[in-house]
Amino acid sequence: MNLPRLWTRNQELFPDPFRAMRREMENAFRVFDQNLSVPDIGAGAPAINVAETKDAFEVTAELPGVDEKDIKVSLDQNQLVISGEKKAESTKEEKNWHVEERSYGSFYRSMSLPFEPEDGAVDAHFDKGVLHLTIKKPAKATKITKAINIKTGAPPSAEAVPGKTATPNKAA
C-alpha cells in the first residue's frame, strides 16, 4: 500500500507566480550582456586599449570611417573624454538595401585618470582610423621605487630606541 506523500518536489502544487517574470528578466539581461560585449562605433562607445608606462598613459581608440575633424578629445580635471560622430556616406533612399551592418551616429567614451594632467601633457594623433593619445604623468604621479636595506638580527626593543621611554609594568 502506497501512502500519499506529505512533502513533494513537484512545483506544480505551489506554482511560483514570479517564474515567468524571472525568466523574462534573465533573458533581457542576457541580451543586454551580449550587446555590451562588442563595443561598436555606432553603439556609443568605441573600442579602446589603455597601457601604462613609467611616465605616461597610452590610449588607442578604434574609430574606423570617422574623419579627423569629427573627433573631439577633451580633459575635465582627471576625466578624459573621446567623442564625435561617424556620418553616413549616402542616404538610404538612394538604394535598395539588402544588408546593412555598418553603423553611424555619435559616439562617446570617457575614463578617469589617476591624476590630473598638466597643461600640454596630452599628445593626440589620428592614423588609419585609430586615435593615439599619450598622456604624460605629472612628476608627482611618477612612481619612484626606493630600496629598503634589511638588517640582520632581532629588531631593537622599545627600551633601546632613542627618544622612547619604556613604560613600567604596573602590577595591581
Rank of each mutant, 00 (worst) to 15 (best):
S83F: 05
K170I: 13
D40Y: 10
V50G: 05
K146N: 09
N35A: 14
V99P: 08
S83R: 09
H125I: 06
I48Y: 01
K54P: 02
D55Y: 05
N10G: 03
H125Y: 11
E100H: 05
N78V: 02
R102Q: 11
R9E: 14
L3T: 09
P46A: 03
P156D: 15
P4W: 01
S110T: 04
D16H: 01
V122K: 00
K136L: 04
I48Q: 02
F18P: 00
K128W: 12
K87H: 06
A43D: 14
A124P: 00
V50F: 03
E101H: 12
E89D: 11
T152I: 09
P168W: 07
L13Y: 13
V31R: 12
E12K: 06
E116I: 09
S90N: 08
E68L: 03
Q77P: 02
V59Y: 04
K86T: 03
Q77M: 11
P156H: 15
T60L: 05
Y104L: 03
T60V: 00
A166V: 12
P162M: 07
N49P: 05
S110W: 06
A88F: 00
W97Q: 13
P138F: 01
F57H: 08
T8L: 06
Y108K: 02
V161F: 10
I150K: 14
F32V: 07
E116Y: 07
D119F: 08
L133S: 02
S106N: 10
S37R: 15
I150G: 10
A61H: 05
E52Y: 06
A51Y: 12
L3M: 09
K86A: 03
I71A: 00
K164A: 15
K143S: 09
I48E: 01
F32T: 10
V59T: 03
T8E: 09
M25H: 14
G44N: 02
A158N: 10
A47Q: 13
D33T: 10
D119Q: 03
S110H: 04
R9K: 09
N10R: 04
K72W: 07
H125D: 14
L13G: 10
I135S: 00
F107W: 02
T53Q: 07
T145I: 11
H125M: 12
V38M: 11
F57D: 00
P117I: 02
